[in-house]
Amino acid sequence: MSSYSENNSIQTFLTELGGLSRFTVQFFRELFRPPYEHKEFLKQAYSIGLNTLPLIGITAFIMGLVLTLQSKPVLEEFGAESWLPGMVSVSIVREIGPVITALICAGKVGSGIGAELGSMRVTEQIDAMEVSGTNPMNYLVVTRVLSTTFMIPILVFYADAVSFYGSYLAVNLHDFISLPLFMNLAFDPLHFYDLIPATIKTFFFGFAIGIIGCYKGYYSEKGTEGVGKAANSAVVISSLVIFIMDLIAVQLADLFNVFMR
């Protein structure tokens, strides 16, 4: 019985993986095929940015503040308080900013895309698009995947900036430090090879959120339960994929650092 269910889950996993791979290939095929739906792309990008801005801002601010407050006593113990801004900035830029932003977007944007496309599938709006001679892959999927791919890196920069401000406030809760000095100390240990891999991986995070959300929504099963499942699995799978991508990115970034140094 247990071996049967294991086989079944392996089969489901492989079917999903195959389906997602095919969907990704289809996306790249449609990407360069006209018509280019630039208006829909801008609308989606605007909506993603606007909808997630407050949530990312609040989370990034708290992350910067908490990380500083938690690290302060440890650094104080061996008199390395002046390293605090630098340590926080490296953590934020390399890891916390991209991953937290991507996870928030997986929850908010990925589920939104999954639910929207899922309900369009259930109410036959995708079929209606197809029978009116419009390619839904081009209009719905390409625009949404491109907008998440380009908006997540921008949101990460925003999250990093707000986190820095949170960290600056945390330092000033106990001591006094001017903003220019804080920024100087924060940027000092940051190098080109910290920024580049961290930025590149955010494009992949954005792509994963968009393509998984679209895939789950586009092939959502009929009925309202199908829409719920599409939204839910879009979040779960894209969050997992973000961590796996991050793991790979860390290894590649290390290689990049060795090469650059």
Partner: peptide, 11 residues
């Protein structure tokens, strides 16, 4: 042309 049972208007 195709008229859908549930209308399928873009909501």
């Amino acid at each position: 042309g195709f008229i859908f049972q549930g209308n399928a208007l873009y909501d």
